[in-house]
């Protein structure tokens, strides 16, 4: 029973693992660039969650099949149950562009911090701020 819950929904378990890895990178790492890398991992895990939520499964001749690419195929017909849901794809398309812009702003802040304190280590920066 528990094994079946894992084998049917393993993508969600892996997505949660990636979210935890990203959160660990943001909270547990001292280097500021490592924190940024953790943030990128976290964002990508959220994208994966949405894309997995858009997939559809259908049963044909007893086997479980995944829905097709959301472009109408004359052989498949116009039944919407055979195609994946395209709405989350459009949302995530926007979110990817926003995430690249966020990374650019974060890197600009990082360069300014490095110019002021000559370090990217959180502890060293806090010590130099106190002086």
């Amino acid at each position: 029973m528990i094994l079946e819950a894992f084998t049917d929904r393993y993508v969600y378990f892996m997505t949660v693992a990636l979210l935890i890895i990203g959160l660990y990178g943001m909270l547990g790492k001292r280097n500021l660039l490592k924190k940024l890398i953790g943030m990128i991992v976290f964002q990508t895990a959220v994208f994966l969650f949405f894309i997995e939520g858009a997939t559809k499964f259908f049963i044909e001749n007893g086997t479980k099949l995944r829905g097709s690419v959301p472009v109408i195929d004359p052989q498949l017909g116009t039944d919407p149950a055979l195609y994946v849901n395209p709405l989350p794809h459009v949302l995530i398309l926007t979110a990817i562009v926003v995430s690249v812009a966020t990374t650019g702003v974060a890197l600009a802040l990082l360069l300014t911090i490095h110019r002021g304190y000559q370090s990217l280590d959180e502890k060293v920066i806090l010590e130099r701020m106190r002086q």
């Binding site: 994208f47 997939t55 690419v69 994946v84 995530i92 990817i96 562009v97 690249v100 890197l107």
Partner: peptide, 21 residues
Amino acid sequence: MGSVDVAFTEAALGAGVTGVF
């Protein structure tokens, strides 16, 4: 997973532009 538009945007922006930045 069947979302080709997201896949090539991720390959161009996530793997390309972010890496260059």
